[in-house]
Design a protein around this nucleic acid. Structure first.
Lengths: 322, 322
DNA sequence: ATGAAAGCGCTAACAC
DNA sequence: GTGTTAGCGCTTTCAT
């Protein structure tokens, strides 16, 4: 029991005893067993997190924010990748819950029936992120992916563009991507503009290469397009490089907008107009929400993130041509 | 006991009994407790992994390869970020070991004294990756970061370049980055060339922006440089954009080479000459090595990865000028 | 094919 | 400030 106390920072052991114990432990190569401690105290110190892909700077930033904030309270993240696949997400959630996390964070509001049931039944905080779910399971920290595209369309319309196209992924797999496409269509309709210039660039996530290929198709199908809204900065950058290769000037001939405020967008030539979704803040706010709920101190309220459009050099006012 | 068996896929329970149990469990919202199972069986199902940064496509690919290969055997990854800091790595290793992982994977061969001791003492496989350590703790799956830079220097020399510069990070923090710088210097000396054109772009990891800033300084300091070796594709891309902005043609005036085969390098204009370090394969081979050792079937040998130079449009033969 | 007993390494709760 | 007892939810082992 004294050994146990010696390993807990704030418990009552004489300084001398503790020192002896810790030194001896180090000599013996003893390593404290969290597994046993967690079983007994019914606190795993884990927060389970599922993200669509590990190889995405936005989600990586969110995980970074979560991880850094939670580690200040000695909690660790148990991470899983869904590969943009709800069935995979279901398997993952089930597997993660077996580790008895103290909270679970999932991306977006679209899940299988069974995954929803698992999350509703489990007696820990559930936080959906990167979206505002139509029917939240527990809490959420996110924003409307549709509204975000409205902002981008409004930006282009304010610049005088009317023939605006959208480059995104194949429809169903990426819920947030589809939501952005829907938001684009709705915004175009609200302006009485033709919302049918939609290029499907392939299964999510859309790579730079797929963005470039989609741009080539777009130029062929709708050569008189004035502005292009892309589902992410990666697709937008791909589109930009395709223009480079074809000797097409951006923003002179096409304005281009992306999403996600990736590093590439502020370094490439021209810099990319984009939307900052505050990826790291999403993680930090989610972690704070979790800590509030676990503490029971503050009530723990949903967080609406306000993405911000960043106008850069890839979009500019249309010069009068006609 | 029968319930326990019903949840283990391959154990002997009548099909009927198992079905009843699983159905009832689902109705009750019962979730199997891995924590308790692991404590009793002394198998956590975890492999601990430390990487310098979550926000790096190379390390993300390695983790992806590890994760996918290990998940086929129902093992999970417990991930930690060292932030390119060996003290942070030490803390992390200690914390991760408390979770009783069945193996631990660390990046590179540079660690604090105490971290080395912890890893030497612990009775699980230890694998160092992304490097060939001078004094391996256990096994390794990696390549020589110095040799890799020699290949790049040789490439430029074969193209006729003699005034070659290096853009990398501040010296000590990123062991692999420093190793690449040392490799650059050694290779230049082997060719009897001046190895002193070294630009320190800032603390690792070097961002695209820092690569661009370093390029600006390089042009000022050594305007007659013919080729530039960059510590990563991100730095190389930044350097490329700086040239764009200044109206300097690449590869006409400067040849540029990167490292890591990031997606950006095959899409940007011009495409980037780089070195493919087979990041995903590093993860896969590491996972296979771990499984071999845990099985006790095959002996489990170190793996030497062979990075491959990919010549693209950002480097080309120097035209005779003099 | 199923069950009973013991125990994995800790900590909660209660002495003293 | 330190010690004793019991038990977290499983699996190992041995019976039947």
């Amino acid at each position: 029991m004294t050994v146990s106390r010696a390993f807990k920072a704030d418990s009552l052991v004489s300084a001398e005893t503790r020192e002896t114990i810790l030194r001896t432990a180090e000599e013996l190569g003893y390593v404290f067993d969290s597994t046993a401690a967690n079983l007994r105290s019914q606190k795993s110190g884990f927060v389970a997190v599922t993200i669509p892909s590990i190889n995405n700077a936005n989600f990586a930033d969110t995980v970074g924010g979560l991880s850094d904030t939670l580690s200040r309270r000695d909690m660790q993240i148990l991470l899983g990748y869904t590969n943009y696949n709800v069935e995979e997400e279901e398997r993952l959630i089930e597997q993660l819950l077996r580790r008895k996390p103290q909270a679970i964070v999932v991306t977006g509001g679209t899940h299988t029936q069974r995954a929803r049931r698992l999350l509703q039944t489990v007696a820990i905080p559930v936080i959906e992120t990167w979206d505002i779910p139509a029917d939240p399971i527990g809490h959420y920290v996110g924003f409307s992916n549709a509204v975000v595209m409205r902002d981008m369309v409004n930006h282009f319309v304010a610049l005088g563009c009317r023939r605006i196209a959208f480059i995104g992924g194949d429809v169903e797999r990426d819920a947030r991507g589809s939501e952005r496409r829907r938001g684009f269509v709705a915004a175009m309709q609200a302006h009485d503009l033709d919302p049918s210039r939609l290029i499907a660039a392939g299964p999510p996530p859309i790579s730079m290469r797929e963005g470039a290929d989609a741009m080539a198709r777009l130029i062929e199908l709708y050569p008189d397009t004035e502005a292009i809204v892309c589902v992410s900065d990666l697709a937008a950058y791909g589109a930009l490089t395709e223009c480079h290769r074809l000797g097409i000037a951006v923003p002179d001939r096409f304005s281009i907008g992306g999403f996600g405020n990736y590093e590439i967008g502020e370094v490439c030539v021209p810099t990319l107009t984009t939307i900052n979704a505050h990826a790291r803040e999403i993680g930090e706010r989610t972690a704070e929400l979790i800590l509030d709920i676990l503490d029971g101190s503050r009530p723990g309220a949903d967080v609406k993130i306000e993405p911000r459009l960043i106008a850069r050099d890839s979009s500019r006012a249309l010069l009068p041509r006609h």
